[in-house]
Each structure stands twice: as structure tokens, then as C-alpha cells.
């Protein structure tokens, strides 16, 4: 079966500025694919090229196996798009805007629109100019989810939604996925991607620097371990792949590279383990590794020159929450 989206070596120049620099992306039918990257990484540009709104400078782009610029109209019948910054007509109500979008796409079940509006707690009778950012986002989401399409293209779709609505959104996407709809989900909300995405591509400076399932990506990073042992576990610090080991209140905390986990476990067992907690890396940690470094090469991870002696763990939540709140804006 042909992939829903195939992008190979995509380059896009705006004058002298290179927005995309050899980006690759592929999405299989029925897959929910998370597109992650910092602002300006090229996520929105990629989506606009996929929609045929921008023309690529070079590279191959195929949507359902076709050229998105040449076959825009036919292809757009099969997809629905939610922009990151939804702008509505000030004098049209949300309900009118939803009808405009769904009808121009080929029509939608009106009762579905109403039930979605109810789930998202959206007042369809308000004029576009009176909606808050979150409500404008809901209008676009309802219009997209009400259409029967093969592909949903969502560009940071829940920016401005409150956590309750975020949960409704996740439900809706899960339902769409169950119905076999493919989803391209560009997002900053990592928890959302972790819950929804089958595969993830991390984009940075116009290039795909990592792609794969979450499990595959986690191989590339470290597991955080907290153990309480009967005998001191300081010696673990000398093992290859162990980082930032610290002892506090009888607990030993350290991080270990994915491929060295088995050896560390072998060394732990004789020390008399009373309790052990191991966290898989969150996507935030994955992203921090890529955003925090200049080249995105895995070996250059963890730019913590002073962090070797002290545990790095306490510093992390701070960084992490910083990244999350930025994405929430």
C-alpha cells in the first residue's frame, strides 16, 4: 500500500533563507505521526507544502501518491486541516465558518458537527471576532473532525485549549485512528504526542534529525534509575554508560545509556536491591537533547559539563517545564 505522505529531501528557500534543508517524512496509512520540533524548525512550512500552498524549491513530495500542488483540489477532498493559528471571519459565526469549511471540502454530517460542538463545549452562534483563541481553535477542530477524510493534518491543534478540551481532543483523535484515519500531528505538547503518536519525527533547522516509533527513539537515550541498596552503590559510577550518579538519603540516582542497561543490572543485583524505580526517558528529554545541542548528534547529548559530579536530575524538571510552557503559548 502506498504511503499517505512521502517527503524526500525536501528543500524550501524563502529568498536567501533556507526554511527546509533536505527534510524527510513518511506516513503509512492509518498511522498517527507526531511531528516535533522547535519554533522555526520548518513544521508549518512542510505542512503548507503538503497542502500545495507553497511550492518546494526541490525534493519530492507525494500526498496519496500524487503531487500536492498539481492535484490540490482532488487531494484536499481526502484531508482536513487545522492550522496552528486559526483566523476566522469576524462577521461570520463559528457555525457558519464550520459549514463553509466542511461544504467546500465536500460536505459533512450536520448532526456530527453538533455533537462535536457539544463535546468541545463550543457555542456555534457566536461571531468570529468574539471568539477567544481557544474557541477559534475549536471551530477549526470541529470542522476538521466532522469531515469524513482519510488524513487529518493538524498543526499544533490544541494550542490555547484547556486541559479538559485537550482530553476531548485526544479522545477524538483516538476515535479517528480507530476508524483508520491517518493523522499528521505537529505539536509542542509532548504528552499529547506520547499518548497519540505511533511514530515520531523530530525536525530541527529544516531537517529530520530523528524518526521512528517512540520505542525506537528511546533506545537512543538514557533511563533514569533510582535505587535503594543494602551496600553502597558508588562504584556503579565507573561503569560505562552511567552518568550523573549521586547518593542522597540512602538513595542512589543515576542515568544509564540504553544499551548499557543489562550490565548495570548485573552489577546492581549483588548489592542487595531493596527498591528500584526506572523511568523511560520522556519525549521531553528526547527533545531537550536535540534542542539543547548544536548538531543533534546523539553522542553530543547532555550539555552538562558541570553536571557530571552533581546529579543532573534536579535540573531537568526545570528545563522540562520551561519547554512545556513555551509550547503552550
Amino acid at each position: 500500500m502506498t504511503d499517505v505522505i512521502t517527503i524526500e529531501n525536501l528543500v524550501k528557500d524563502y529568498g536567501r533563507v533556507r526554511a527546509l534543508d533536505g527534510l524527510n517524512l513518511s506516513i503509512a496509512p492509518g498511522e498517527v505521526h507526531g511531528l516535533l520540533g522547535p519554533n522555526g524548525a520548518g513544521k508549518t512550512t512542510t505542512i503548507r507544502i503538503l497542502l500545495g500552498l507553497l511550492r518546494p524549491t526541490s525534493g519530492t513530495v507525494r500526498l496519496f501518491g500524487e503531487d500536492p500542488a498539481a492535484e490540490a483540489v482532488a487531494l484536499h477532498r481526502r484531508l482536513a486541516y487545522v492550522p496552528g493559528d486559526v483566523e476566522l471571519w469576524p462577521n461570520l459565526t463559528g457555525g457558519e465558518a464550520i459549514d463553509v469549511f466542511t461544504r467546500l471540502r465536500g460536505g459533512a454530517d450536520r448532526s456530527l458537527v453538533e455533537s462535536l460542538a457539544e463535546r468541545f463545549d463550543l457555542d456555534l452562534r457566536k461571531k468570529g471576532r468574539t471568539y477567544s483563541k481557544g474557541n477559534r481553535q475549536k471551530v477549526a477542530l470541529v470542522a476538521a473532525l466532522a469531515s469524513e477524510v482519510d488524513l487529518l493534518v493538524l498543526d499544533e491543534p490544541t494550542a490555547g485549549l484547556d486541559p479538559l478540551m485537550e482530553a476531548v481532543f485526544q479522545e477524538c483523535i483516538s476515535e479517528a485512528k480507530a476508524a483508520g484515519t491517518s493523522v499528521l500531528l505537529s505539536s509542542h505538547i509532548l504528552a499529547q504526542v506520547e499518548v497519540l503518536a505511533d511514530r515520531v519525527s523530530i525536525v530541527r533547522a529544516g531537517q529530520t534529525i530523528e524518526t521512528g516509533t517512540l520505542a525506537e527513539l528511546r533506545h537512543l537515550t538514557r533511563t533514569s534509575v533510582t535505587v535503594t541498596t543494602e551496600q553502597p552503590a558508588d562504584a556503579l559510577a565507573d561503569l560505562p554508560g552511567v552518568h550523573g550518579l549521586a547518593v542522597e538519603d540512602g538513595q542512589t540516582r543515576f542515568e544509564v545509556d540504553g544499551e548499557h542497561v543489562p550490565i548495570v543490572l548485573q552489577h546492581l543485583a549483588p548489592l542487595g536491591v531493596r527498591s528500584i524505580v526506572a523511568h523511560p526517558p520522556t519525549l521531553e528529554q528526547l527533545l531537550l537533547r536535540h534542542y539543547g545541542t548544536g548538531d543533534g548528534v546523539p553522542s553530543a547529548s547532555a550539555p552538562r559539563p558541570a553536571g557530571r559530579a552533581r546529579p543532573a536530575e534536579p535540573a531537568r524538571p526545570g528545563h522540562t517545564s520551561g519547554a512545556t510552557s513555551r509550547s503552550g503559548r
Binding site: 461570520l92 459565526t93 457555525g95 459549514d99 463553509v100 461544504r103 467546500l104 450536520r110 456555534l124 468574539t130
Partner: peptide, 26 residues
């Protein structure tokens, strides 16, 4: 007070020309 409008678009707004007319109407 700003008025609430209709919950759904007029039935004739089904194509780009009709949409343009709706937007330019006022």
C-alpha cells in the same frame, strides 16, 4: 449588546463564489 448569529451557514454558501459573496455582502 453584540448579537448572536445563526448556528449554520445559509444553504446557498456551498462554493467559492458564494463564499466570496457572503464575505463581501456587508
Amino acid at each position: 449588546a453584540s448579537r448572536r448569529g445563526r448556528a449554520s451557514a445559509a444553504p446557498w454558501v456551498t462554493n467559492p463564489i458564494a463564499l466570496a459573496l457572503r464575505l463581501h455582502r456587508g
